[in-house]
Design a protein around this nucleic acid. Sequence first.
DNA 1: CAGTAATTATCCCGTTCGGGATTAATTCCG
DNA 2: CGGAATTAATCCCGAACGGGATAATTACTG
Lengths: 83, 83
Amino acid sequence: MANKFSRSGIKDESYSEELGAIASAVRAARRRHHLTQAQLAGLSGTGLRFISELERGKPSISLHKMISVLAVLGLQLRVVEAS
Amino acid sequence: MANKFSRSGIKDESYSEELGAIASAVRAARRRHHLTQAQLAGLSGTGLRFISELERGKPSISLHKMISVLAVLGLQLRVVEAS
DNA sequence: CAGTAATTATCCCGTTCGGGATTAATTCCG
DNA sequence: CGGAATTAATCCCGAACGGGATAATTACTG
């Protein structure tokens, strides 16, 4: 996941494939819906900061907030067997 | 999700189907592996409290910790289209 | 290219997570 | 059934989330 907006922060890219996949899925879905991060924040009852961090794969984000965001985008979380 | 160990706490059962499904999946998988919550905590690098709350569907748990637990149980998180 | 829009980083600060311990309640099983 | 095992609730407290604002950086477009 290319961090194109990086200023000077260090981003640990090695954390988890799942995290990265979720982050990418959220960003892609947001763009499909032609929403800015700010709009998505408003629609999901979260803040701009949360959306930004979610899309950059921040590990420690709160599950229910993420579920709220997914719902706005017509997505869901599922538990599956590891491949 | 029957709360069989409930003492006197009030449990909001209406929160999110996804949360409940994740919680149930974790508990079921743990039992399939014949692990106690304490053992699973040890294996996943979390604490007993976290496992207990995860299995009871606590909404605000931290995503990466949950992913660690799922990994021990041979499970993964996926984002899917909402049905 | 320049101006505007969008995204990211950082700050302050109130709220809450969760480790580990302890206690209480429930479940398990011989 | 009773005792041991397991799970849930609660406590203290350090760590950290995240709202909102601000500033910096990057992307977009005419």
